[in-house]
Structure formats: C-alpha cells, structure tokens
Amino acid sequence: MEALFYIFSIIAVFSALMVISMKNPLTSALYLVLCFFTIAGFYVILGMQFLAAMQVLVYAGAIMVLVVLVIMLLNLSKIKKIKMDLHQIFIAGVIFIILLAEITIYIINGYPKKPTGIYTHALINKIGNTQILGEFLFTKYILPFEVASVLLLVAIIGAYLFAKKKS
C-alpha cells in the first residue's frame, strides 16, 4: 500500500504538471486522463471502490470525451499558436509557491483530530460501500440529490442555448 501510494502520487503530480505545460491541448487532455486514473487508484487504496468506478466512468470517460470532442471541433493548428506571457507566468509562479507553502505548513502543523464516526474500514467492507453510499444518498442527503437533478436539467438547457447558432 505504501509503495502504491508513492507510485500513484509521483504519476499524479507529473501528469498534472504535464497538463498545464503542454502546447497541444489534445496532449494535455490525454495526460489529464492519466491523472484521473491515478486519483481513482487513490480512492481504491482508501477503500472506496464505488467512487473509483465513478471517477473512471464520469471523469475519465464522459467529461474527457466531451473535451476531446470540442478540441476536435475547433481548429487545432490555430489554437497551438497561442503564446504565454512571461510576466504572467512569473506572477502565477510566485502565487503558486506562496499557496503551496501555506497549504503545506497548515497540514503539517494541524493537530490530529480523533476519528468520530462509526463507519470504520472493516464495517464498510462488511456492508459493502455501494450499499452504504446508496443508503446515505436516499435518506440523509435526499434533498441535495433532488436539487442535483434540477441542476443537470439546467445544464442541458444551458449547453443547448450556448451552442446553438443565432438565427
């Protein structure tokens, strides 16, 4: 588990760096798929197989297919010519270093909180994590679940309105 964690984290950070540094957006998209797969691997290590499956199906499958399809619709040779501004990169790098230092200091200095819930690793494996997620989703979180369906409807209508030609 320990070794797997280190392998996954190295691949995840490397592919995330490649996503933002590649000139061709299609290459970035493929590296992003790699990053999503490694994050699915993290979920499996943490004992959440259902979320790993959702990660692969929804993110690496549906969303990335959408992105690649849109890249195909646009003119790739024209997109590749977009230049980066050196001044902007410098400012972004400074903000990156400051934010990373803040997060690291915050995580290292935070005092450990005691586990409060009852859903230990053994219990989740005994009941099955798909069943447990389903029970929570349809009892305690039923209102957000319904609101999410309305949100998806709004997204369908919005995407149609944005993408249609002006008559």
Binding site: V13, I20, I63, V67, A92, I95
Partner: peptide
C-alpha cells in the same frame, strides 16, 4: 492531503498562466 494540495496548486497555476480556454478548463477539472 499534501498530494491533494500539490495537485490543487498546479491546477491554480494552470488557470493563472495559460491563455487557452480549453487548457484553463482542464486545469479547473484538476
């Protein structure tokens, strides 16, 4: 948490420094 923080910061770096709308969107996903 540190891996998550590093990936989050890399995504933010991408949003701030790239000018391609598609790549900015992919950084947001990150």
């Amino acid at each position: 948490l540190i891996v998550a923080g590093i990936i989050f910061c890399i995504g933010m770096l991408g949003v701030l420094m790239r000018k391609n709308l598609i790549v900015i969107f992919m950084s947001l996903e990150l």
